[in-house]
Design a protein around this nucleic acid. Sequence first.
DNA 1: GGAAAGCAAGAGCAGTGCTCTCGGACGTGC
DNA 2: GCACGTCCGAGAGCACTGCTCTTGCTTTCC
Lengths: 216, 216
Amino acid sequence: MTGVRETNRTRTTATILSAARREIAEHGGSGLSMRAVARQVGMVSSAVYRYFPTREALVSTMIIESYGNLAAALAEVTATDPAARWRELARAMRAWTLANPHEFQLIYGTPIPGYVAPPETIPAAASAARPFLEVGSRHAVGAFDELRLTAQMGEMTALVAGAQPSGAAAVLAELAALVGMLTLELAGHFVGSADPADHLVEALLDRQVATLGLTS
Amino acid sequence: MTGVRETNRTRTTATILSAARREIAEHGGSGLSMRAVARQVGMVSSAVYRYFPTREALVSTMIIESYGNLAAALAEVTATDPAARWRELARAMRAWTLANPHEFQLIYGTPIPGYVAPPETIPAAASAARPFLEVGSRHAVGAFDELRLTAQMGEMTALVAGAQPSGAAAVLAELAALVGMLTLELAGHFVGSADPADHLVEALLDRQVATLGLTS
DNA sequence: GGAAAGCAAGAGCAGTGCTCTCGGACGTGC
DNA sequence: GCACGTCCGAGAGCACTGCTCTTGCTTTCC
């Protein structure tokens, strides 16, 4: 019956995805091989194409999964004081990134050449950014209070009740700062200077809570 | 005679590199194909391996070239007032990045899985960071003035006369912020919010000159 | 029971990085 | 002038890749 078929199908899909996850953890996103995935699940490669019509489709699904994993890691944060909460969110993001570097690079790293993010990834990306927006965009931030910039923040402020446009822009910039720091840390750019980067990150967080006006 | 042979060799090497540059501009770093490069220079692929023993060696050489190109773009900046100079350096970096996205991703993007930066790239990377350090690390920055962090800044402050350890750390963080913003912009993460990102970047620069104490 | 749909397997195509062997061109020592 | 060694491009070949197409078995539907 249909229900069972559906179940089998989604189960096989899940098996393939978890095998792909293991592959990516070892060889990175750009090194993901459909044939290697097939081998892991005990299929021949052409069978995998029944479930994912293309390598890119598999990767896209994994990107959405990874956004979900990151969002779940952020949801574990319990601190309520704004400054403390921002710090904990950032630390959780860093911890998740260091534990799952290839997943981080899947979502924030170099897109595979020719890759265009499918629209389904946009809400997934938003779910990872939302916790930061919720705690960080409550106050206006002077440096980001420029008309043509705040005019672009409509969709961002709609995500979060009580968000200030300039605050949302500032959060965007601070998220970019976080992503940049993690990118450079993962790529080893701090070797010879701020390596390990723990202290640099903590100083960044001090600066961020000050910039965002999260007095604690 | 030896001199001529050397000349032929370096000329062929240069030809290969420029073909590889064109390939990367079109297909990205991870899509660089030794055979496609060979085709472009009218050789068979095995001949290319006389000049670059491995694909990774070709990429490494291109990474160093790209650092040089970025450093050259930064060297065009003439502003002398510290705040203006920081802004101009950042704008030059962004302009170079938008004009050469694949080269940017070559140096600051996801490393090819299994890739470890060869030691030759370290001075090349430093030459791109130096102009920012020179203008931005002259003042101490409170949020980055922590002992265990400033203790890591020895190599950085040695690069630049009169650099403050906390200022150098702050510059490192601000460079990461810049890289993060450019990474997200290139990957299309701002589509739907700060796209185009011009205004967000300008606001970021306002915030950066304030953080670094570059009163203008 | 027969038609239809679902799905795994296998062969095959065009591409990849890389290796190895061959053969011609060239500079050098005698 | 001739042999030697070194350089270097060409070609074949190996193991791999993403992806397609055909074949045949199994399960579901009526």
